[in-house]
Each structure stands twice: as C-alpha cells, then as structure tokens.
Simulated assay, not measured.
Amino acid sequence: MAVNKFMIVFPNAKINIGLNITAKRPDGYHNLETVFYPVKINDALEAIIAPQLSFASSGITIPGDIENNLCIKAYEFVKTDHDLPPLKIHLHKHIPIGAGLGGGSADAAFFIKLLDQQFELNLTVEAMQNYCRQLGADCAFFIENKPVYAFDKGDQFESIELDLSKYVIVLVMPPLHVSSADAFRGIKPELSTVSLKELIKLPLAEWKEHIKNDFEKSVIGKFPLIGEVKQSLYEAGALYASMSGSGASVFGIFETLPSLQHLEAKGSVFYNV
C-alpha cells in the first residue's frame, strides 16, 4: 500500500443552472431536475496518518457536531468495507455554508477520492458515487465533477455538453443562511413541459426567459435581499442570473468582467468562478 504521509485536496463548489421540483416521493424526498456545473471556489482538505481519528476546521465556522461532519461519515462508510488507518483531518472552509453551493458534499466526495487514491482501494466511479449517495443528494456529482443533467433526487446523472469557460461567472453570497428544509416547504411540485436537458441547449441569452429555479419564489419572498442581488446582477449586464440550489448564493454569467463594487455591501462577491 503506497501512502503519502501528507494528503491534501481542494474541493470545489457547484452551481445549479435551473432547478425544477417535479414530484414528491413516497420516501419523503422530492424528484427534481437540474444542471450541476462546477465552479472555482475551493475548500482545502488535508489529512495525515495519526494514532486516532480526529477532525478540526478553520475558516468559516462549520455548524454541528464533529461526528456528524460529512468527512467523518465518509471515512466511516469507506472503512466499513476497507482497511483504513486513523487519520487526523483538517478542513479549511472557504465555500460559503447554506449557500446552495454543495460545499459539504464536495468535501465528502473529494475525501472519498483521496482515500481511494492514497490507500489504493481501486474503487470504481460507481462505488464512490454509491458511498456519496448515502451522504447527500448532490454529493455523488463531485466524484466526476463535470457538468451533468441531474434527476431523481438529484443523484442520478446524464453527461451534457456545456462549456461556460468563455464567460465570466460571478457569485454573490448575501449574509444569510437558507435552510433546505424551509425552502422545500414553499414548493409545489410540478412536471416541466420541456425538460431542462433540452432548455440548456438554448443560446445563453435566452436562458433568462426559459430556465428557472423553483426555490426562488418562496426563498426570495422570505429573504428579499436575494432578489435584490439577482436584479443587481442583471442591471450590471448579466446574460443570466439565478439563485443556486436552495440559496442563498446568487450567480451571474457575464460576457466580460463587470464592476460590482456596489454589491459588496450586500454580501461576499466571488469573481471569475
């Protein structure tokens, strides 16, 4: 077993381009369709072999007990099937929490990939995704970490051709925390007349008229600042702007880098993500 003493990865965030809640499931979850797109806002996750398993963090404060941290849960899931040594884990949190960016899911997925690589577990993509599906609906996305059309609970994927590299993506994170549970309470599931898988093929300039996030109506109703940020992005020249996931972050896609200093009073602004 070839093992590096020091291990580090840089989990990245994702945005949702469109999000349609299509049905309530018998298991209490919802079926949905969305497009996951990776963006360049990163955490730093490092680990070393240690006498006992431990977890610590810096940067943005992570709520909850350590034993409920997704990285610890990921370690325990993998250790059930494979021999792993105890690790001292440290996470520097930079991806905003409660933002709809999948930061916790990304940390867990990247940690599973790190375990696979460092301890030569020879896990398949499917095996790693199956571990992730026990941790969160969007977690499995980060194993391959490429644009996908997601459906069912958001944990089943189809590859899509989507490259936004010629555009500038700016993300604004207002000083708010949106609970996913609260966001779902304001949703009335409805089947889409045209699949997002087809709508995403439209010219980007037409997305504004056709691609929506079902969470926006109820979430913006409760947090008007999110709606103000979205409108400000359009006023600054965004071709498309949307809340990501269940919020609270809002992103805009621009042809050129905009001047958004006026938005810095409304939240943290991340350029060129």
Rank of each mutant, 00 (worst) to 15 (best):
I112D: 14
Q134S: 08
K188Q: 05
L45N: 11
P258Y: 15
V178Q: 10
H30C: 05
N42A: 12
L191T: 09
E198H: 13
I72S: 13
F151W: 05
Y240H: 08
L233Y: 06
A150T: 03
D43G: 05
F151I: 01
F119D: 05
L260Y: 02
L196T: 14
E198L: 11
P11T: 14
S218W: 00
T22Y: 02
S218L: 00
L114T: 06
M243N: 11
G136Q: 02
P11F: 13
L32W: 03
A13H: 00
I226Q: 10
L45C: 08
V229E: 10
K79E: 12
K24T: 07
M243G: 12
S192G: 12
V78A: 02
N272H: 07
K73Y: 02
K73M: 03
A108T: 12
V9P: 00
G252A: 03
Q156I: 04
A183V: 00
L114C: 06
P38W: 10
N31K: 09
D152H: 09
L196I: 13
V125S: 13
L53D: 06
R185H: 04
S268F: 03
L84C: 11
F223S: 07
K197L: 09
P174W: 15
S105E: 04
K217Y: 02
K93A: 08
W207H: 11
K208Y: 00
S179H: 08
L164T: 14
L135E: 03
G221F: 00
G247H: 06
E190W: 00
V178M: 11
A47M: 06
E255A: 12
L171K: 07
N69V: 09
N4F: 02
Y75K: 07
M173W: 09
E161R: 07
G28Q: 02
V3I: 04
N130K: 13
V273A: 10
T193Q: 06
A181Q: 10
